[in-house]
Amino acid sequence: MLEIRNLHVAIEDGSKKILNGLDLTIHNGEVAAIMGPNGSGKSTLSYVIAGKPDYEILDGEILLDGENLLDMEPDARAAAGVFLAFQYPLEIPGVATMTFLKAAMNAQSRARGEGELKTPDFMRRVKVGAEKLGIPQEMLRRGLNVGFSGGEKKRMEILQMALLEPSIAILDETDSGLDIDALKIVSEGVNALRSADRSFLVITHYQRLLNYIVPDTVHVMSKGRIVKTGGKELALELEANGYADYVSDVAA
């Protein structure tokens, strides 16, 4: 279970406050969607949960199964089960995707005090995962994300998610830059990973993604807070009426 309580966050140099007392609870097995206009702090929330260093935490706590994530380094959070699918996945030239996947999986099992994966087991898991997502073997030999299209990068994020088996997976605008076919593949990949002990935080601008990844709860974010919470029908309402009802008092 992920519990965020009274979270106040500013950009590191203190120039701008982005999260203003955010509260959010996501239960095990729950798929929560966060929607909101540009600049409402959605991406910041995903970065702060994952531990990106550019932010200053002014107040509040983030607990994953009772453990305070804010006390942990980004790699320790990853090993504890936090996964962030990036909106813009980074390129690592010269590092074969396969090499990167193995390094990441082994680093996490080491951190958890588990043994490293045997190479044949690793190869098999990658092969099965890649096939499901329509990722050709040839891509796995190329430098990570180097020269990949937007859709290929997103599929690679989902493959990493499948291999790393997180307890909380955050999808930061995974639908951006995807055509409808790619969106379907990615969504199927995500749906296949839904389980009773894994929760999801799906960040998106548009309702479209939620037709494929159907959420249990929808949260509207504005000015760095959750301003409304509802079921999946809330997404449809937002689609029809826009965010105006929630952001009207922001204009000034």
Binding site: A78, A79, F83, A111, Q160
Partner: peptide, 14 residues
Amino acid sequence: SEEQMFYCRQRGLS
């Protein structure tokens, strides 16, 4: 880049 470092660390690498 800081971004590359964060990406790798998010995947569990020190």
